[in-house]
């Protein structure tokens, strides 16, 4: 984003250049989100649909309904578990690629191996767990054949476990990429300087590597949190409809065309996500990162 003083463009040119982006963002992001907020205060009438009004009815409905709380709690639980697992995996895989693989070419190759699935369909990747985790799936039949168990494990598929597996499968990449990015920028001599000062292997990771990829970790966490919090489909497919998520309520309301309450629920979700995002950035102290 370094300002170019190459050709002294007029501000008009600059604005023309961002105009298409601005237009798309306004029309397909700002206005829709604003409308969601507005509609969340509207009234819903059976058979009539949306009635313009200003009421807290939808919010009161939601907050007084214990299901909302259970669903949010369950989503937060999934978010935290997924965050923990993807962080540990993402950090150590990036660490391996950056600091242990000696050839840069191989490191880039292995990095690409990790990223390719990102560009393929999420739904297919979810479905592909069925023949692996199912009652007659690969893992169960292997365990039975090995004599470890005699009844197939039921909790492998359509359970909280399979939901977490799918989340980790789909979203670890969002941790690996930003952490890899910030790690790759660490000057290797910093590690040697730490070793010189008597730091152990773990001491180097804790005192040098970890603090220097805070930004990457924060970015990865932001992705994972928003993806899991906003997810409806993974939890539905992988739990077989047994678990819900914060978005399940929205889904139900939409089935009955109750847009105002769906919108109110969406607003709550949005606020929770933004609060978590703000908390993450507070923890990392991005301002300090930007100053240096």
């Amino acid at each position: 984003m370094s300002p170019s003083n190459a050709a002294s463009k007029s501000p008009l040119t600059t604005y023309l250049q961002v105009a298409p982006l601005m237009l798309v963002l306004l029309l397909f992001f700002a206005v829709p989100v604003a409308l969601v907020v507005v509609v969340s205060f509207f009234r819903y009438q059976m058979l009539v649909g949306i009635v313009p009004d200003f009421t807290f009815r939808n919010y009161i409905d939601l907050f007084s309904n214990p299901t909302t709380w259970t669903l949010y709690l369950s989503t937060v639980k999934f978010t935290l578990i997924t965050l923990a697992i993807t962080f540990v995996l993402g950090f150590w895989i990036a660490y391996f690629l950056v600091f242990h693989v000696r050839s840069l070419l191989i490191a880039i190759g292995l990095f690409l191996v990790c990223t390719v699935p990102f560009w393929t369909s999420n739904i297919i990747r979810m479905i592909s767990w069925r023949p692996v985790l199912g009652t007659e799936g690969l893992i169960n039949s292997a365990l039975i054949k090995a004599g470890v168990i005699d009844q197939p494990l039921q909790w492998l598929l359509y359970s909280d476990f399979s939901v977490v597996v799918a989340y980790v499968h789909l979203f670890t990449l969002f941790m690996i990429v930003p952490i890899f990015n910030s790690m790759a920028r660490i000057d290797k001599s910093l590690l040697e300087a730490a070793v010189d000062a008597g730091a152990t292997r773990w001491g180097v990771v804790w005192n040098v590597v970890l603090p220097l990829c805070k930004t990457g970790i924060a970015l990865g966490a932001l992705f994972v949190v928003t993806l899991v919090m906003g997810d409806f489909f993974v939890v539905t497919v992988m739990s077989g409809g047994l678990s819900g998520s914060a978005t399940s309520g929205i889904f139900n309301d939409l089935q009955f065309l109750n847009y105002p309450r769906a919108a109110a629920n969406a607003v709550i979700l949005l606020i929770v996500v933004l609060l978590i995002a703000a908390a993450i950035f507070r923890l990392v102290d991005v301002r300090k990162e930007l100053v240096r």
Binding site: V36, T226, G230, F232, Y259, A266
Partner: peptide, 21 residues
């Protein structure tokens, strides 16, 4: 920041918004 927010807003929320719009 608007672009970043567009990146992190849950897809379902946006989907509803666009439909309503």
């Amino acid at each position: 920041y608007m672009a970043i927010a567009s990146l992190i807003v849950p897809g379902l929320v946006l989907s509803i918004g666009i439909l309503v719009t």
